[in-house]
């Protein structure tokens, strides 16, 4: 692999990185919103969210990204491929993040809420000042774990023509006729990224454990 090939490969890596990052930045708060809505026990809304999460868990990203990219214009929403990719990853990761957040909300000790109520705090204030700072710490390991899954599923966006870190290997080998080196380098880059996140998750887990005690 020459300099030019390596440069192309790094561009692919950058595409994977920023698209994933945007999807995570949107998917984490959206997941929290979904979890809160579900826990609020509003009749129909709750069911819709359950359906959403269940569909999100079951739908392959390749299928979803095609559906969104080809289907959205028919609804009068023109999407360029990058937006379609981001929306797909975001919707998908939000479904999983919602479950992580919900587990943290459910295991939150009720006595603390009672104590805050007794101190005269409103529901919003209780959530913002008492719950969020704590469920953030307990959820973070799960959210980071979810990010590793997002990165592992992200090559799906190649199917709508985005040249990400996986698809770029095709581009390079079309020129060099040597598919193995770019694939191996791309694999190594994925391993570094995911390995780093896994390590981060362990650190955060240790921190969350301390909070639990």
């Amino acid at each position: 692999m020459d300099q030019a090939a390596l440069h192309t490969l790094l561009l692919g890596a950058w595409t994977t990185a920023w698209i994933s990052a945007v999807a995570v930045a949107g998917g984490v708060p959206l997941g929290l919103a979904l979890a809160l809505l579900r826990e609020a026990r509003i009749p129909v809304v709750g069911h819709i969210i359950v359906l959403y999460v269940s569909l999100g868990r079951a739908t392959p990203l390749v299928t979803l990204v095609l559906f969104i990219f080809v289907g959205a214009p028919l609804l009068g929403i023109p999407l360029d491929r990058y937006t379609a990719a981001i929306v797909t990853l975001l919707l998908n990761t939000a479904a999983f993040n919602a479950e992580v957040w919900r587990a943290a909300i459910r295991s939150f000790p009720h006595e603390q809420v009672e104590a805050a109520r007794a101190a005269g705090m409103t529901r919003v204030l209780i959530f913002r000042r008492i719950m969020l700072p704590q469920i953030w710490i307990t959820s973070l390991p799960g959210l980071v774990n979810e990010m590793t899954f997002l990165i592992k599923a992200s090559p799906a966006i190649g199917v709508i023509g985005i040249v990400d870190l996986t698809r770029v290997t095709n581009r390079i080998s079309a020129i060099t006729y040597e598919p193995l080196p770019p694939i191996l380098v791309a694999a190594a880059l994925y391993m570094v990224a995911i390995g780093t996140l896994v390590r981060l998750q362990r650190l955060l887990d240790a921190r969350a454990q301390r909070l639990a005690m």
């Binding site: 990165i151 090559p155 870190l165 290997t169 694939i183 191996l184 694999a187 391993m191």
Partner: peptide
């Protein structure tokens, strides 16, 4: 477990 499935299939 640190590899995306697709890059492994590519390999």
């Amino acid at each position: 477990r640190m590899l995306p499935f697709l890059i492994y299939a590519y390999l």
